[in-house]
């Protein structure tokens, strides 16, 4: 059996305008530029990167909001974009998403009941809608009294819980969590995260967890991929990732995290001073996109884009430093 979800050299370019007066050449942003990864059933795969690195574009491509420019996405060995047809309902049902800001992902003019009924109607649930909605609320520990509330009556955390219940309505096997707690305060975040972990155990869900918070990632994911300007620079098992980060960017990222205890301070890699600006995604430098900020940049980095190198069990890095040592 193949992987649960597999991305093979996935690319998504956006044309944002045209240049030139006679010969109109399109200006493109390479939001996702050749990304490959696999997601196993029942795991939480973390996708980390700074804003604009292409994390959300990957998420939206997986649920089908975008058509990839090149590459393929296999779900149970089935091409999600096979032959350009619209995705069958049965397949859409399997993959659901929870967005970052529950304030804008819930319709303000609908009650919680209406919000939760919509996916059930679309996917022609056979059972009684009201019973089903109540069951969904129970699943996420919300009392039935919430049925007739409007989103504005709920706190940010509760809104996100409703969004999670909506994602569960079609009984999916994969849920994409696009920064599910970054719009919430820390004191509320924990409740949502622990709910998600409980649901994962009970319903055998697989998560693609997108965040920029590495401390949070440490506590939820089993494997992580780090993205920088549309490309993956490192993929590793969670414990391996935090104990032996290899890519200079990963090291810079990890050592820049502000932490609250001495113990964590010691767990961080040796400080890599962060320098330089993140280049604009419209104008990505040639060679390795990180070479301008990299403390260990070599001559080759300015010309050649490095390829993914395997460093052993599930640990891959995209950096010239490791190509040479092989």
């Amino acid at each position: 059996m193949g992987a649960f979800l597999e991305a093979i050299d996935l690319k998504k370019y956006f044309v944002i305008g045209h240049e030139g007066t006679v010969h109109r050449t399109p200006v493109t942003v390479k939001a996702v530029d050749g990304v490959s990864f696999t997601l196993q059933q029942g795991e939480t795969f973390g996708l980390v990167g700074e804003s604009g690195s292409g994390k959300s574009t990957i998420a939206y491509t997986i649920i089908g909001m975008y058509q990839p420019t090149a590459g393929s996405l296999l779900f149970h060995d089935l091409d999600l974009f096979g032959k350009g047809k619209t995705r069958p309902l049965a397949l859409r049902k399997q993959i659901q998403i929870v967005f970052q800001d529950p304030g804008s992902s819930l319709n303000p003019r609908q009650t919680i009941r209406q919000i939760l009924e919509l996916p059930l109607r679309l996917h022609r649930s056979s059972s009684d809608l009201l019973t089903e909605v109540v069951r969904l609320l129970e699943l996420v520990d919300l009392p039935p009294a919430y049925l007739y509330k409007y989103p504005y009556m709920l706190s940010g955390g509760e809104k996100q819980i409703v969004a999670i219940a909506r994602a569960l309505a079609t009984s999916p096997s994969l849920i994409i969590l696009d920064e599910p707690t970054s719009a919430l305060d820390v004191s509320v975040q924990g409740k949502i995260i622990n709910l998600l972990l409980r649901l994962q155990r009970e319903l055998d869900l697989s998560y693609l967890f997108i965040t920029h918070d590495l401390s949070l990632m440490r506590n939820v994911a089993s494997r992580v991929a780090i993205m920088y300007l549309g490309k993956v620079c490192e993929i590793a098992e969670m414990s391996e990732f935090f104990t032996h980060p290899q890519h200079p960017y990963t090291q810079m990222l990890l050592s820049s995290i502000p932490v609250v205890t001495e113990e964590e301070e010691r767990a961080k890699p040796v400080k890599v001073i962060s320098t330089g600006e993140i280049p604009s995604p419209v104008n990505v430098p040639p060679g390795c996109s990180f070479h301008m900020r990299c403390p260990r940049a070599m001559e080759i980095c300015q010309r050649v884009d490095p390829a993914m190198v395997s460093l052993g069990e599930g640990h891959t890095v995209r950096c010239h430093l490791f190509e040479q040592s092989q």
Partner: peptide, 15 residues
């Protein structure tokens, strides 16, 4: 409530 870089799970936060 702050998730720790050293792992160990996430607190439920403040009710």
């Amino acid at each position: 409530a702050v998730p720790k870089l050293t792992g160990g799970g996430v607190s439920d936060g403040i009710p």
